[in-house]
Design a protein around this nucleic acid. Structure first.
Length: 412
DNA sequence: TGTCCACTGGAAGGGAGGGCTT
DNA sequence: AAGCCCTCCCTTCCAGTGGACA
């Protein structure tokens, strides 16, 4: 008589003790190799506990260099200490990748201060200035010091972003009962240079730089998390060293290293293995790469998929680098096949830049003399991933266009 | 050395769509 | 219902560009 289908799975002993320790949201109490940055933040933010206004700060550093984790850790500690001293400190964290317009950022901060009986602010509809006023009112009412963290602040571009940063850096001139300090977190060292002078001088009072972790430092971070989050002696020799070395190659990205270690342990569990081997890690690495790129491709808008398809079709026909003109031409044929209105060349040029930005292609500007100026586009999708198949599975309409073009090219 | 090509990329603005206020 | 605000996606216009070629 077969038992419950979950019974067997429950019977397996997990290699994890605490899986959450490997999550991106997890903020550890101990952040190795970030003592200097923590100290710099503390020296500045301690003013909030003395009733003064901490200077605005910008934390710079590559992805996975610990900026967000350090900022969360420091703010958690600040809130704890404030509670102990009966001071009011209100941290607000906004990720500008997800919340990326002036309106929505103001709305998000104001909503975090919403009290029972307050009118809730809609996602859209109000004039932005009204949202700003509402946010100021709520800040005044709650008093104390507000610390606003703008994660990935470099993604706030254009007049709307400048205007928001202007608003936020001017808050202290409008507030009477409370104070405000701003922390920007940026991957881009040159972000501040693009800001208008009026904002730049007020935002960048203190810069804290997070150098990428080297292989040894990532090893320390992984060892610590492994000892907190995994059963004893489940990692084969060499696993941590390989994982750290791979992450160090990828610009010292500790987040990626943790993700890889977690995926490797899951692979081992899937194989009902009692230990995690280098082979599990290699398999996990492939899996992560496939998942990441596959998800990116699947979520592209239709025309962007067609532009990528145009690049891949030309590459499949032996071209190593494709010019913008050729991409446009192939793209137009595909849209004609699908009975779609094609976008303009200008728009395609921007879509190619976007594909370059998200890492699916490399688009390099070159001049071919009398052949004119153009971009040479090369796909960056690893050989093992069938991007056309991924696109077709997400957008079945593309199947005909993809196949028709292949047949056309084969017959040439 | 000037010309020319095939673009690039900034700026401005149109229009659709979603949501709120009056 | 009309008017307003905001965002997003897109087009149009156009000055600028790098380097081969005459």
């Amino acid at each position: 008589m077969p038992g419950n289908i979950f019974e067997v799975a429950l019977g397996h002993q997990s290699l994890f003790v605490e899986r959450a320790i490997f999550d991106a949201r997890h903020t550890p109490n101990n952040l190795p190799h970030r003592e200097a940055q923590i100290e710099a933040m503390v020296l500045n933010l301690v003013d909030a506990l003395r009733g003064h206004i901490p200077s605005n700060m910008i934390l710079y550093g590559a992805t996975g260099s610990g900026k967000t984790a350090v900022s969360r850790h420091v703010l958690n500690q600040l809130s704890e200490q404030a509670a102990e001293l009966d001071r009011r400190v209100h941290p607000h964290e906004v990720n500008c990748r997800h919340v990326n317009t002036r309106y929505r950022i103001l709305q998000s901060i104001a909503t975090s201060l919403e009290l029972h009986g307050d009118q809730s602010i809609p996602f859209t509809g109000w004039p932005a200035d009204r949202v700003l006023k509402e946010m100021l009112d709520r800040m005044e009412r709650s008093g104390g010091v507000h610390v606003i963290v703008l994660d990935e602040v470099d993604l706030l571009t254009g007049p709307s972003g400048d205007s928001l940063l202007y608003d936020l850096t001017s808050l202290n001139t409008l507030l009477n009962q409370s104070r405000c300090s701003l922390i920007g977190i940026s991957n881009d060292l040159h972000f501040v240079e693009r800001l208008p002078a009026s904002v730049r001088s007020r935002l960048a009072h203190e810069d804290i730089v997070f150098d990428p972790y080297d292989s040894g430092q990532i090893h320390d971070i992984l060892s610590q998390r492994a000892s907190d989050g995994l059963q004893k002696n489940v990692l084969d020799q060499g696993v941590l060293r390989l994982c750290s070395a791979l992450a160090a190659q990828e610009h010292g990205d500790a987040r990626r290293a943790l993700e890889l270690l977690k995926a490797s342990v899951q692979k081992a569990e899937h194989d009902s293995s009692k230990t995690v081997t280098v082979a599990h890690m290699r398999a996990a690495q492939h899996q992560l790469e496939f998942d990441q790129i596959g998800a990116t491709i699947r979520t592209l808008p239709l025309h962007q998929k067609l532009v990528l398809l145009a690049v891949l079709i030309n590459e499949a026909n032996g071209l190593k680098a494709v010019s913008t003109g050729l991409v446009c031409e192939t793209y137009r044929q595909a849209t004609k096949h699908m009975r779609l209105e094609p976008l303009t060349n200008r728009r395609i040029s921007t879509l190619l830049n976007d594909l370059d930005q998200i890492g699916l292609v490399t688009a390099r500007n070159v001049s071919l003399g009398r052949g004119g100026r153009t971009k040479l586009v090369v796909s960056r999708i690893p050989v093992g991933i069938n991007a056309v198949k991924v696109m077709v599975s997400a957008e079945p309409l593309l199947e005909d266009a993809a196949e028709a073009r292949y047949r056309l090219q084969e017959s040439l």
